[in-house]
C-alpha cells in the first residue's frame, strides 16, 4: 500500500550525496574568473595626448632657437620604430624632404643672397627649375598640376625678407596669412571666423584665452597638403565567446574575430 521505502531511501541518499558534492565543488573550486579574456586589450597603452600642431611655424622655430620639440612627432613617426638618421657622403646629416623646411626656416637668406634681383629658371616644358642650392631643402608641391611652383608668386624678387601678393602688395612674414588669403579667400574667411583651423584653450573667452593657429602651423607653404598620419589604435575587434572556456577563447581558437579586415569599397 505504501510506496516501497527502498526506492525512496535510495533517491534520498542519492540526492544528499549530490548536494554535498555540489556544495564541496562550489566552496573549493579554483578561482578562475569565467570572464571573456582578450589578451591584446590588456596591452593597450593610451598615447599621451598632445595639442602640438603638425608643423612648427618659422616664428616659433626662431623664437625657440631651433628647438622643434613642440612638434607632434608621432603623428608621422611610429613610436615603436624610431627613425634613423641618414648621413651624406661627407658625413653631414641629410635632412629628409619632410623636414627640409625646418632647415630652410632657420637659414639666413642674406648669407647667400646679396641684395640683387633674382631670376627664375624655366625648363623646356615651362616648369620652374629648383635652383641646385635649394634642391635638397624643399620640394615644391603647391597647387595641382604644378600650378604654383614659381617662387616669386609669393616671394619678393628684390627683397627676400618680404612676401608679395599677385597684385604687388608687399607683406611681412608675420602677415603671411594675408598672402594665403589672396588666393584662398573662402578658406581665409572661414579661418577668420574660427571655422577653419584649430582653436585651443577657451571657447568662452570671458574665462580664458582662445589660442588660434596661423596657416603655417599646419600648412608648409611650399607643400601645404597635410601629410599622411599614422592612425592610432581603433576599437579592438570583439571576439565572439560563448559556450567555451575563457582559456580557449584567449588562444584565439574558435569563431573568428568580428570586424576584422576592412570591407572592400563597394558602392
Amino acid at each position: 500500500m505504501s510506496p516501497p521505502p527502498d526506492k525512496s531511501n535510495f533517491v534520498m541518499t542519492g540526492l544528499i550525496v549530490l548536494f554535498l558534492a555540489l556544495g564541496v565543488s562550489f566552496v573549493f573550486s579554483p578561482d578562475r574568473a569565467p570572464v571573456r579574456q582578450d589578451p591584446e586589450l590588456s596591452k593597450l597603452v593610451t598615447p599621451a595626448p598632445t595639442t602640438a600642431t603638425l608643423r612648427i611655424t618659422a616664428t616659433q622655430l626662431k623664437a625657440s632657437g631651433g628647438d622643434a620639440s613642440i612638434l607632434d612627432c608621432y603623428a608621422c613617426h611610429d613610436e615603436k620604430k624610431p627613425p634613423t638618421v641618414k648621413l651624406g657622403a661627407d658625413g653631414s646629416i641629410v635632412f629628409p624632404k619632410e623636414h627640409a623646411d625646418l632647415r630652410l626656416m632657420m637659414a639666413n637668406c642674406s648669407a647667400c643672397h646679396v641684395d640683387k634681383k633674382l631670376e627664375v629658371e624655366y625648363a623646356k616644358n615651362g616648369d620652374v627649375v629648383m635652383p641646385k642650392a635649394h634642391a635638397d631643402l624643399l620640394a615644391m608641391g603647391h597647387g595641382r598640376n604644378n600650378r604654383n611652383t614659381n617662387c616669386f608668386n609669393c616671394h619678393s624678387q628684390s627683397k627676400l625678407d618680404e612676401l608679395v601678393t599677385r597684385d604687388g602688395t608687399k607683406l611681412t612674414f608675420a602677415q603671411a596669412p594675408l598672402l594665403c588669403a589672396s588666393c584662398h579667400g573662402p578658406t581665409y574667411r572661414d579661418w577668420e571666423l574660427g571655422m577653419h583651423g584649430r582653436t585651443n584653450g577657451y571657447w568662452d573667452t570671458s574665462k580664458g584665452k582662445a589660442v588660434r593657429q596661423d596657416c603655417n602651423a599646419c600648412h608648409d607653404p611650399h607643400g601645404p597638403a597635410i601629410p599622411q598620419i599614422i592612425p592610432l589604435a581603433g576599437p579592438k575587434p570583439v571576439l565572439t565567446h560563448g559556450l567555451r572556456s575563457a582559456a580557449t577563447a584567449a588562444e584565439g581558437g574558435g569563431p573568428k574575430a568580428e570586424g576584422g579586415p576592412p570591407k572592400a569599397a563597394s558602392q
Binding site: 599622411q228 599614422i230 592612425p231 575587434p237 570586424g259 576584422g260
Partner: peptide
Amino acid sequence: AHYAPESV
C-alpha cells in the same frame, strides 16, 4: 571602424 592602414 577597425581600419588599421599604415597611414591615413
